[in-house]
Structure formats: C-alpha cells, structure tokens
Measured scan of single mutants.
Amino acid sequence: TFYNFIMGFQNDNTPFGILAEHVSEDKAFPRLEERHQVIRAYVMSNYTDHQLIETTNRAISLYMANL
C-alpha cells in the first residue's frame, strides 16, 4: 500500500520523511487504501500545508512508477 511505501521514509530528513511522520500520526489516514485517487483526495481534503500536499503528489507518482 501507499502507507507502507511512505513509512519506509520514516526518520529520513527529507520531504518524504516529513510526510511519513505526518501520515504515521494521522489516525484517520487510509492505511489500507491502494487507489492513489482516494489517497490524493484524502490529503487534499485533510491537509492544509501546501508543501505536504506537493510532497504527497510526488510520493504517489514515485509509488505508482514502482508498482
């Protein structure tokens, strides 16, 4: 899942690491979701930090390219 992918960046001092920290603390994050459209919609609806949203979009693109 995307959640498992992004958790691989925990403790990294990178934008993906920052995203992983936010996702791990977000109890409502769709952890079992595999459809990138649902993940993107969730982030757009629940996150207000523009940098975090952009990082999510980049992470989703990388995740999709590696499926």
Rank of each mutant, 00 (worst) to 15 (best):
T1E: 03
T1F: 06
T1S: 13
T1M: 04
T1W: 05
T1R: 06
T1H: 05
T1A: 07
T1D: 05
F2A: 00
F2K: 01
F2H: 00
F2Q: 00
Y3C: 02
Y3K: 00
Y3F: 13
Y3T: 01
Y3R: 01
Y3E: 00
Y3N: 00
N4W: 11
N4M: 11
N4I: 09
N4A: 13
N4K: 10
N4Y: 11
F5W: 12
F5H: 00
F5L: 01
F5E: 00
F5T: 00
I6W: 04
I6Q: 00
I6N: 00
I6A: 01
I6R: 00
M7Q: 06
M7T: 05
G8R: 11
G8T: 14
G8N: 11
G8P: 02
F9C: 04
F9M: 05
Q10F: 14
Q10P: 04
Q10M: 15
Q10Y: 15
Q10E: 08
N11L: 07
N11G: 15
N11S: 08
N11F: 11
N11K: 10
N11Q: 08
N11H: 12
D12N: 09
D12I: 07
N13T: 08
N13W: 06
N13C: 11
T14R: 03
T14Q: 03
T14G: 15
T14Y: 03
P15E: 14
P15L: 12
P15A: 12
P15D: 13
P15H: 09
P15N: 07
F16T: 01
F16N: 01
F16W: 05
G17N: 04
G17S: 08
G17Y: 04
G17V: 04
G17F: 04
I18V: 12
I18C: 09
I18H: 10
I18S: 08
I18W: 12
I18F: 10
I18P: 02
I18D: 09
L19K: 00
L19F: 03
L19V: 05
A20H: 02
A20T: 03
A20G: 02
A20C: 03
A20N: 01
E21L: 15
E21P: 03
H22P: 03
H22Y: 14
V23Q: 03
V23M: 09
V23N: 02
V23S: 01
V23F: 12
V23K: 02
S24M: 13
S24N: 12
S24F: 12
S24E: 08
S24R: 15
E25N: 15
E25G: 14
E25D: 08
E25L: 15
E25Y: 10
D26P: 02
D26E: 04
K27G: 09
K27F: 08
A28G: 13
A28N: 15
A28H: 14
A28M: 13
F29V: 02
F29L: 03
F29Q: 00
F29D: 01
P30A: 03
P30V: 12
P30C: 03
P30I: 06
P30E: 02
P30M: 04
R31T: 06
R31Y: 06
L32V: 06
L32D: 14
L32F: 13
L32N: 13
L32M: 13
L32R: 09
L32S: 12
L32E: 13
L32I: 06
E33N: 04
E33K: 03
E33R: 03
E33S: 06
E33Y: 02
E33Q: 04
E34M: 15
E34W: 15
E34K: 14
E34V: 15
E34L: 13
E34P: 09
E34S: 15
E34Q: 14
R35I: 04
R35W: 05
R35Y: 05
R35A: 08
R35E: 08
R35N: 15
H36R: 05
H36A: 15
H36Y: 13
H36I: 15
Q37M: 08
Q37E: 15
V38I: 11
V38K: 08
V38E: 09
V38L: 09
V38N: 07
I39N: 01
I39A: 01
I39E: 00
I39R: 00
I39T: 01
I39L: 05
R40T: 08
R40Q: 11
R40C: 12
R40N: 05
R40H: 10
R40W: 15
A41C: 11
A41T: 09
A41P: 00
A41L: 11
Y42M: 04
Y42R: 01
Y42L: 03
V43R: 00
V43Q: 01
V43E: 00
V43G: 01
V43N: 00
V43I: 09
V43T: 04
V43W: 03
M44I: 11
M44F: 09
M44H: 08
M44A: 11
M44E: 14
M44T: 10
M44K: 09
M44P: 00
M44G: 07
M44C: 09
S45Q: 14
S45L: 12
S45C: 10
S45F: 08
N46T: 13
N46M: 11
N46P: 03
N46W: 06
N46Q: 07
N46D: 03
N46G: 04
Y47C: 07
Y47G: 02
T48G: 08
T48V: 10
T48A: 10
D49W: 05
D49Q: 07
D49E: 07
H50A: 14
H50Y: 12
H50S: 13
H50W: 13
H50P: 15
H50L: 13
Q51K: 13
Q51H: 11
Q51D: 13
Q51F: 15
L52I: 09
L52T: 03
L52E: 01
L52A: 02
L52H: 03
L52Q: 02
I53F: 05
I53L: 10
I53T: 04
E54D: 10
E54N: 07
E54V: 09
E54W: 06
E54Q: 08
E54S: 08
T55K: 01
T55D: 04
T55A: 11
T55G: 03
T55E: 05
T56I: 14
T56D: 02
T56W: 14
T56Y: 13
T56Q: 02
N57H: 12
N57S: 10
N57R: 09
N57D: 12
N57W: 11
N57F: 14
R58F: 08
R58A: 10
R58D: 06
R58S: 07
A59F: 04
A59E: 05
A59N: 02
A59P: 01
A59H: 15
I60L: 15
I60E: 01
I60W: 06
I60K: 00
I60V: 06
S61H: 12
S61F: 12
S61A: 15
S61N: 11
S61I: 14
L62K: 06
L62Q: 08
Y63H: 07
Y63F: 11
Y63E: 00
Y63M: 08
Y63D: 01
Y63C: 04
M64K: 09
M64T: 09
M64W: 08
M64G: 04
M64S: 07
A65T: 09
A65Y: 10
A65K: 12
A65M: 12
A65I: 11
A65D: 11
A65E: 14
N66W: 15
N66L: 15
N66K: 12
N66D: 10
L67K: 14
L67Y: 08
L67C: 12
